[in-house]
Amino acid sequence: MDYVLFVTGGPDSALGMLQSVMQEGDTFSAVAIGGEKLDEILDTCISAGASETYRLMDKAFIGSDTWALARTYAAFAGKYHPGAEALIFARYSSAMPMLAHLIRAQQFCYVADMERDDLGMIVTQDYGDDRRRCRVPSGSVISLKEGVDIPFQDKGASTSDVRILGLEDLELAEMSVGSFGSRVFEREVC
């Protein structure tokens, strides 16, 4: 099985969570959107066993609101990992439920625990006033609850270059991303 980790903050707990459910033969890829300073975080993912790392970067992405960002993520997921078992966000972002809608997947927010049985993955969602366990269909989008602390095992660095993907690689039109593709705009600082 293949997993995708969207790095939207410190990935440590997400890496730990992923390692706890991955089985022999499973792989995971890590993807971040932004500049070179994210390469250090992607290196951490490589040391935890990421088979591939991507960084989405293009001038055209500048000015994206969550809608345009979600479309960028959806284009990446659809082209590079269409059959991923789960797409995991290290930290909740408004783009996560939007991505789930765009790829017609279920979403699971505030995940405090992940496990696997013979039928597939099960997550525990923690809403604060209620916890529930749900079965996760293949292709679902998951984000972790803030404050979950699961250390990951460093499997030793392996050489894996970060693939930089831009607008053309994702086969996106310029009008779909950045300020052209956004719906919300910053008007003034008060």
Binding site: T66, W67, A70, Y92, S94, P97, A100, V184
Partner: peptide, 21 residues
């Protein structure tokens, strides 16, 4: 709320519109 924050972006995406949280 936790549920509202989970619902709102998906509802906005369903309508092809933006959201400010």
């Amino acid at each position: 709320t936790p549920r509202g924050a989970e619902l709102a972006p998906r509802a906005a995406a369903s309508m092809g519109t933006g959201i400010v949280t």
